Simulated scan of single mutants.
Amino acid sequence: MYKNFFKRLFDILISLLCLPFFIIIVVIFGPLIYFSDKGTIFYNADRLGMNGKVFKMYKFRSMKLNAPDIRNEDGSTFNSEDDPRLTSIGKFIRKTSVDEIPQILNVLKGDMSIVGPRPDLPEHFEVYSEAEKKKLSVRPGITGYNQAYFRNTIPWKERIKNDIYYIDHLSLWMDIRVVFKTALSILSRKSVFIEVEEKNEQ
Rank of each mutant, 00 (worst) to 15 (best):
L13D: 12
I14A: 13
S15V: 08
L16V: 02
L17I: 14
L17E: 07
C18Y: 06
L19M: 12
F22E: 09
I23H: 01
I23Y: 03
I24S: 08
I24L: 11
I24C: 06
V27N: 01
V27C: 14
I28A: 03
I28C: 04
P31M: 06
F35A: 00
F35C: 00
S36K: 03
S36G: 02
D37K: 06
D37L: 06
D37A: 07
T40G: 11
F42A: 01
Y43W: 13
A45I: 11
A45T: 13
D46G: 05
V54N: 04
V54T: 11
V54Q: 02
V54K: 08
F55N: 00
K56F: 02
K56R: 10
K56N: 10
M57A: 06
M57Q: 04
K59V: 10
F60A: 05
L65K: 10
N66E: 11
A67E: 05
P68F: 07
D69G: 03
D69S: 10
R71F: 13
D74R: 05
G75T: 09
S76R: 10
T77E: 13
D82C: 06
D82Y: 04
D83L: 00
D83Q: 01
P84D: 13
R85H: 14
L86P: 07
T87Y: 05
T87G: 01
S88F: 11
S88V: 13
S88K: 15
S88H: 12
I89F: 14
G90D: 10
K91D: 15
F92H: 09
I93T: 13
I93M: 12
I93P: 11
R94K: 15
R94L: 15
T96N: 12
S97K: 14
S97F: 09
V98R: 07
D99V: 08
D99N: 13
E100I: 15
I101T: 09
P102D: 00
P102V: 00
Q103I: 01
I104Y: 03
L105E: 02
L105P: 02
K109C: 08
K109A: 10
K109R: 12
G110D: 07
G110I: 01
G110P: 14
M112G: 03
S113T: 08
S113G: 11
V115P: 14
G116Q: 06
G116V: 10
